[in-house]
Computed example of a mutant assay.
Amino acid sequence: MIYATVQDMVARFGELELIQLTDLENIPPAELDAARIEVKLSDAQSFVDGYVGQVYRLPLVGCVKTSAGGAQEHVPPPVLTRLTCDLARYYLYDDLAPENEVYRRYQAAVKELEAIATGKAQLACPWGGSPGQPLVADAQSGDELQTYSSFRRGITDDDLRGFA
C-alpha cells in the first residue's frame, strides 16, 4: 500500500513549492519533477514502515473506505499520508536550519511515529476497522494478542559467573 502520492504532496504544500524543490535546472518553463518526489516519498514510506512495522504486520491492508457509490477501497490511514508527506518534503530540502518549519514538522513526524511504535498512539481508520493485522492486541479490532519476538533472552551477571 502506498501511503502518499505526488498529488497528496501538491495538495498539502502547493505546486509552486514542489516545483522550486524539484526543478533543479531552473530553466523556464519551470516544471514539477514527479519522479524526484516519488523517490522521496518512497524513502519516507520506508522510514514510516520502520516504525509501523513494530506494531502492524507489513504491508498494511489499509482502512476500508466506502465511496458515495457504495464501492469499497483500501486507503492508508490519513495520519500515515500526512506523516509520509511531511517526511518526503523534508527530504526534498537540501539544507535546512533547525528552526525551519519543514524541519519542525519532520521532528514532529518522527515523534508521532515513535508514539505509534511504542503503543502510546494508534493508527486510526476514520471509517472504522483496523488498518492492518496488529502484532499485538488492537483496541480498534479487538484481535487476540499475537506476539512475535526475535529477541533473545538477555544475559545476566549470573550467566557470566565463572567465565574469565
Rank of each mutant, 00 (worst) to 15 (best):
H74N: 15
G50T: 02
L92C: 10
T118K: 12
D49S: 08
Y51F: 15
N26I: 07
Y103M: 11
V79W: 00
S150T: 12
A164Q: 08
V10P: 07
A30M: 12
R104P: 01
E99L: 08
V110K: 11
Q7W: 01
N26K: 15
R57C: 04
V136Y: 13
T22I: 04
K40I: 00
Q45R: 09
G162W: 02
G62M: 09
V64R: 13
Y51N: 05
K120C: 00
E31F: 04
Y93V: 05
A35L: 10
D33G: 05
G142K: 03
P59V: 03
I2G: 01
Y56M: 05
A88K: 07
L135W: 09
E25D: 09
P77L: 02
A109N: 09
E31N: 11
V48M: 08
E38W: 02
E17N: 12
E112D: 12
A44R: 02
T22D: 03
T118D: 13
G53N: 04
R57L: 13
A11C: 03
G128N: 03
D23Q: 10
L18I: 03
I155L: 10
V110D: 04
A121W: 03
A137Q: 14
R161C: 00
A115C: 01
D95I: 12
V6D: 06
G128L: 07
A137W: 01
Q140M: 10
G53Q: 04
A44G: 02
E144S: 11
G132R: 03
D138F: 07
R89N: 15
L80F: 06
H74C: 04
N26E: 14
V61R: 15
E112R: 01
D138E: 12
Q7R: 14
P98W: 01
F163K: 06
K40Y: 01
L18C: 08
K65L: 07
I155M: 06
G128P: 07
Q54Y: 02
Y93Q: 10
I27L: 12
Q54A: 13
G129A: 10
V102C: 06
L160D: 04
R161D: 00
V110Q: 11
V52R: 07
T5M: 05
E25C: 01
Q7V: 04
G119R: 11
P28V: 02
D23I: 07
D95H: 14
Y51E: 06
Q7N: 14
D94I: 00
V61C: 00
A117T: 11
Q20Y: 08
Y148M: 11
L80C: 07
Q140N: 14
A44M: 02
L41F: 10
T22L: 06
T81A: 02
A71G: 07
S150H: 12
T118Q: 09
G53P: 05
L160Y: 01
L145A: 14
Y106P: 05
E112I: 00
A97K: 13
I2Q: 10
A11W: 07
D33W: 00
V79K: 01
